[in-house]
């Protein structure tokens, strides 16, 4: 599942991401390696996406417990001389990064994420509407992989959609090849308009 743009996760940061199974702490170590763990510190249940990244470890903001990329607890600051037992760990998810997008494996996919031939990611938007409403707004159908090509005068833009568990949709806006800054700003505004339209359709459907 495509969860974020590579540029939105600089080295040494953590962000929240969503999977059907719940929230995930997506982070990138100082050396640049992305990783994903359950968004819950097993100590007191605090969301790890509120934490901080130092070196190659993700730490919880509540008590500073830190975890390595494989999910095992590395450090408990309240007991600095204690080596944390092996049993303390967070669930991790497989992460792949390609063509400027970060993907998290749901289940155990055998294949690599699809390539974005000719397109590059621009920005991510959360849409308070389902995929059907977005398709209706765009006047086009999404592919099995969630790719929605915009018709008419926005042929250089494409949306990569993933449905969230609460009826919202995460949309990554992709833009064709060699677009300059002005094209990119225009593409962002086109995507915003499409979101407004889709959310309008969704609301109408609910009130009808």
């Amino acid at each position: 599942m495509p969860v974020a743009l590579s540029v939105d996760l600089p080295a040494g940061t953590v962000v929240p991401a969503r999977l059907p199974a719940g929230s995930v702490a997506l982070w990138r170590s100082a050396s640049g390696r992305p990783a994903a763990s359950a968004d819950r510190c097993p100590h007191r249940g605090m969301r790890l996406s509120h934490g901080f990244v130092r070196g190659e470890a993700l730490s919880c903001i509540y008590h500073g417990w830190s975890y390595g990329q494989a999910g095992h607890c590395l450090r408990i600051p309240a007991h600095p001389r204690l080596a944390p037992p092996e049993t303390i760990r967070v669930t991790t998810h497989r992460v792949e990064e390609s063509d400027g997008l970060i993907w998290i494996a749901v289940g155990n996919p055998l294949s690599q994420p699809p390539r974005l031939t000719g397109f590059a990611p621009l920005r991510s938007l959360t849409v308070l509407a389902g995929v059907a409403a977005i398709e209706a707004a765009a006047g086009a159908k999404a592919s099995l992989e969630g790719l929605l090509e915009l018709s008419e005068d926005a042929r250089n833009i494409c949306l990569l959609l993933s449905a969230q568990d609460d009826g919202e949709t995460l949309a990554h806006v992709l833009i064709k090849g060699e677009a300059g800054p002005a094209d990119r700003v225009a593409a962002s505004r086109t995507a915003e308009s499409l979101r407004r339209k889709a959310e309008g359709l969704q609301k109408k459907e609910i009130t009808q």
Binding site: A4, L5, D8, V15, S49, R123
Partner: peptide, 8 residues
Amino acid sequence: DPYPTIRL
């Protein structure tokens, strides 16, 4: 959560 650019 939904605002990556605001986060940066």
